[in-house]
């Protein structure tokens, strides 16, 4: 399925998309959009050469600031594109988007390859960028990356898509892996222990404490 991105762009918002496997229709008109994709089709030459040729008004200090923001070692400038790791490659595209002052940044499976602490950092960074009026288009298959970041998201089905606002909606898990925290709460409900649809472990812990101490039984 091909989608018209311009239909989704809202400045200062994170728009999330789950289970998308089609192609992105290039934006026309004057919308400024940058892509941070999970592939290696961009930096074939030395990173410095690419940035100096491509970025208008390139400055090393701005490059370093952008690197700091996306947790990328600025020494990447002296590397060749082919020697970059998967996560360096994505972060470098992120840097490029920031240097281009793109109003909209599209991320495809950005969280893949990052571990716990980094994932949390990028969630906060996405939210911060929206405060500066940026639109973040976040395409992912990992619903846990959306926890705490958005309350509504778009789920792609076989031939269409639907806007949802509940991480516990069964339909999602016809397509995606159910996060263990959701599986656990659903299993509790099957066992007639009613807990709210939490998405944070500490909330589940408190709810268990309350339930056990109030004498709930299976």
């Amino acid at each position: 399925m091909e989608i018209k991105l311009k239909d989704f762009i809202k400045q200062g918002k994170i728009i999330s998309f789950l289970n998308f496997s089609g192609s992105f229709e290039k934006l026309i008109n004057n919308q400024k959009i940058s892509y941070v994709l999970d592939n290696r089709k961009k930096y074939e030459k030395k990173v410095r050469d690419y940035f100096q040729e491509t970025i208008f008004d390139f400055s090393e200090s701005k490059f370093q600031d952008a690197c700091k923001m996306v947790l990328l070692d600025p020494n990447v400038l002296e590397k060749s594109g082919i020697s970059l790791s998967r996560t360096e490659y994505k972060r470098l595209q992120f840097v490029e988007a920031l240097l281009n002052r793109s109003e909209t940044i599209l991320f495809q499976n950005f969280e893949l390859g990052f571990y716990g602490k980094d994932r949390s950092y990028y969630q906060k960074l996405f939210l911060k960028l929206t405060k500066y009026g940026k639109c973040i288009l976040c395409f992912t298959n990992d619903i846990t990356f959306l926890f705490g970041m958005v309350s509504k998201f778009i789920l792609f089905r076989e031939n269409d898509y639907v806007l949802l606002d509940d991480f516990y909606q069964e339909e999602i898990y016809q397509y995606l892996e159910m996060p263990p925290i959701i599986a656990f709460i659903k299993k509790l409900n099957q066992n007639h222990i009613k807990l709210e649809p939490y998405i944070e472990t500490k909330e589940v812990l408190k709810a268990i404490y309350r339930s056990v101490n109030s004498g709930d039984k299976l």
Binding site: Y115, G116, K117, D118, R119, P179, P180, I181, F184, T201, K202, V204, L205
Partner: peptide, 13 residues
């Protein structure tokens, strides 16, 4: 900087 798998995290707490 690692998170823990949910079931381990919950069990430990």
């Amino acid at each position: 900087g690692f998170s823990l798998p949910f079931i381990i995290d919950l069990s430990l707490q």
